[in-house]
Computed example of a mutant assay.
Amino acid sequence: MAPPQYDFWLLDLDGTLVDVEASYVRSVFDRVGERLDRRFTDREAETLWHGLGGLRDDQLRAWGIDVGRFWDALHAVEDPEARAAATFLYDDARAFLASVDAPIGVVTHCQPFLADPVLDRLDLRERFDAVVCCTSEIGWKPDPAPVQLAIDRLGVTPESRGVLVGDGPHDVGAAWNAGLDGIHVERHGHDRRGWCVRGDRRITDFGDL
């Protein structure tokens, strides 16, 4: 069955189209913990990596962790090539990308030094008509600015009907703030997340479309 008819599609990357092996997440948080002199449990690592607790900065503050120190430590220990090697494309996302006959772009919080090796290794770069990596200058979802930048790069008309699909509430928020439909894909289950994310549609994988 073909996906719903939109004039263009925007997608989050990590947790939506691709994900990483659990062993990589564990190794990263072991090294971050060494720098912060704090051990992260498997559940804490999973919560932060996948954003299961909502906004990650809020979760860090709730745990008494300095936000700036955490992100500095995380970026310092991540190896782009190792991360790319541990990243896989969801099967349902692969089928979805092959089925869409419309402009399609990515809006991700993943920085270029991490996103680029993933796109190259999984042979995804040519599949997208636009890739926007959020920054402090561009804005972070749910700010609509990076979404609007992606729309501009797609070159679609103002009357075009679009959608943004992502695995976090900030993705749906960014969609709504930019005047798009927002679809939430729940990769982990509401029981593990502990709450439900609102959206124009809520799916468990792209096959639900």
Rank of each mutant, 00 (worst) to 15 (best):
Q111A: 06
D37S: 15
H75R: 10
D152C: 04
F113Q: 13
A115L: 09
A73Q: 09
D58V: 08
L119H: 08
V132I: 15
T135N: 11
V165S: 04
H190G: 01
E46T: 12
V77T: 06
P146Q: 11
M1N: 08
P4Y: 11
V32R: 05
K141V: 13
A84D: 02
A45F: 10
L154Q: 11
E44M: 11
S23R: 15
D92K: 10
Y6R: 08
E46I: 05
A178M: 09
D120P: 00
R121A: 11
D30L: 14
L55V: 12
L36H: 08
A130Y: 07
C133E: 07
T135R: 13
N177W: 02
R61E: 15
A98K: 14
D92M: 11
A130R: 13
A86D: 03
R31D: 15
G189K: 06
E137W: 07
E34R: 15
S27Q: 14
W195L: 05
R153W: 04
L10K: 08
G166T: 02
A174S: 06
A93L: 02
A84K: 09
V28T: 09
W140Q: 01
P3S: 04
G64F: 10
D181L: 12
P169V: 06
L60K: 01
D7C: 12
G166R: 08
A76R: 05
S23I: 02
R201G: 11
D167R: 01
G207N: 13
D152S: 15
H188C: 09
L17A: 03
L17N: 07
L36R: 12
H170N: 12
W176R: 14
D7Q: 10
R198H: 12
T157Y: 02
L114P: 11
G189E: 03
P158K: 11
P112Q: 05
G168F: 03
P4T: 05
A93S: 15
L154E: 10
V165R: 02
P117R: 10
G53T: 04
T41R: 13
D120V: 03
F8S: 03
F8T: 05
Y24H: 13
G182V: 13
G15Y: 04
H188S: 11
E137D: 15
D167G: 01
L114E: 06
R193H: 08
D42V: 07
G53R: 13
G168V: 02
A85R: 08
L11N: 04
C110A: 03
A45T: 08
D116M: 05
L55N: 11
A82S: 14
A85V: 01
R198Y: 12
H50C: 01
D129I: 02
D72H: 05
V147N: 04
P3T: 06
I65K: 09
E81N: 03
T108F: 06
A2Q: 15
C133Q: 08
G33Q: 04
L164S: 03
H75M: 09
R69Y: 02
P146V: 09
E137T: 14
D123P: 00
R61F: 00
R35P: 01
L11S: 10
G64A: 06
L55C: 03
A84Y: 06
F88P: 13
E21F: 00
V156G: 12
T41A: 08
A2L: 14
Y90S: 08
L122S: 05
V156A: 10
A175G: 14
G199H: 05
P112D: 10
P158M: 00
G194D: 06
D208V: 00
